[in-house]
Computed example of a mutant assay.
Amino acid sequence: MDIIAKSWCWQQQGKPTDLILKEKRIGELGDDEVLVRNTVIGLNPVDWKLIEYGYPQWSAGFVPGVDAAGIVLAVGGRMTHIRVGARVCYHTDLSKDGSFSTHTIVPGYALMHIPDKVSDFAAASFPCPSLTAWQAFRKVPDMKNRNVLVSGAGGSVGYFLTQLLLHTGARVYVTAGTKHHTEFQEMGVREAIDYKDTDWKDKMISTLQGNLFDAVFDTVNGSHAASLSPLLGYYGHLIAIQDRVEKAPLSAFTTCISLHEIALGAIHRHGSRKQIAELMQDGEILLDKIGNGTLKLRQQSVDNFDNLPLHLAEMKKNNTEVKYIIKVL
């Protein structure tokens, strides 16, 4: 196998537009690896953040990117059960050359097969936000008939998480920009309040008629998540999806809330192969639900491979709910 990939490469801490397009020779596959020819690349906030701040395992010439969909070109010795030509998508390890390339080597146990009813565009949009939402959803015991708040539901993670919670029978409340309120209410959300309202917390509590939340999912940052802890009732759950809550935000022997940290990327270094494979199996079930229309993804903004740095820079600048993706071929 002698394949030369075109790859957008990181050189040093900087802007997305500092990426350089280079040709890189694809190395030999390990026994547990698979070579994917990418057809569509999903862009995520973590991409521009790491390009800006760097990552311990990165050096000049590293290929960023965690999400893509494509076609299996070759498989390693222990991956012969994966069919060459299969349509797959993936979320890859931050410490390995990633998806900003025409070709990417991925562990075979970290692939998700794409159902026929799901396009490569949808599949590339799926892994990072939707698996993050799924991990957050799974942190909390049965939420049926429980009061749940999703803070920042307008983004890709919050949007998908809100649907998961509604399908499980939770009583869901959200904060989001006003342009999203009608859609959320049509989904079945009990109350949607603009997070820009200075008194949104008081408004939200008033809708609960003397109750508090059983779970709060925050997509903003650790300090914002901590600020939401007074909204939780006894034995409630606070799930910080973006960042973490470093210390207990409430006094001991009060509501005794549980703190939860979400870090999808950490599974590649700290999870077992079994845990990764199970997550991929869950992902395939979710992709089936996207294919049959049970679950929905955010609207997409598509650009070509040659414009990847510009499209990523635009995503960073606009900070909207739109999912930015790149068509490779």
Rank of each mutant, 00 (worst) to 15 (best):
I20G: 06
G77C: 00
M315S: 02
G291Q: 06
K15F: 10
D2H: 08
H91F: 12
P141Y: 08
K15M: 10
F160L: 13
M204V: 06
I26M: 14
V40H: 12
R25M: 02
I290Y: 04
S229I: 08
N292R: 04
T198R: 12
Q13W: 01
M280V: 00
D282M: 11
P249F: 08
K203T: 06
I290R: 12
P115Q: 07
F217Q: 00
D197E: 06
H260L: 11
I276C: 09
H180N: 09
Y195F: 11
Q57V: 01
D202W: 08
D303R: 04
W134I: 06
L329R: 05
V34N: 05
E28L: 13
S251F: 13
T92M: 00
R37N: 10
L208G: 14
I71T: 15
L312M: 14
V172N: 11
A74H: 05
S258F: 05
N318L: 15
M315V: 00
A110Q: 09
A69K: 04
F213M: 03
F213H: 01
L232G: 04
S101H: 07
I241T: 07
K327H: 15
S223T: 11
W8I: 03
H311M: 11
D2Q: 02
V63S: 02
L19K: 02
K201S: 08
Y324A: 03
D288V: 01
T178M: 12
D116F: 03
K6R: 15
G65H: 04
N307I: 05
G210H: 08
W10P: 04
D194Q: 03
P45W: 02
V174Y: 02
E191K: 14
S258K: 06
T80L: 09
A266T: 06
I26F: 05
F160I: 03
E246G: 07
N292M: 01
L161K: 02
K317V: 08
N145L: 01
N221C: 02
V46A: 14
N145R: 11
K96T: 07
Y173W: 11
T132Y: 12
L161C: 04
L231M: 15
Y234G: 02
G70Q: 05
F126T: 13
M280Y: 11
A74R: 12
L228H: 00
T178C: 03
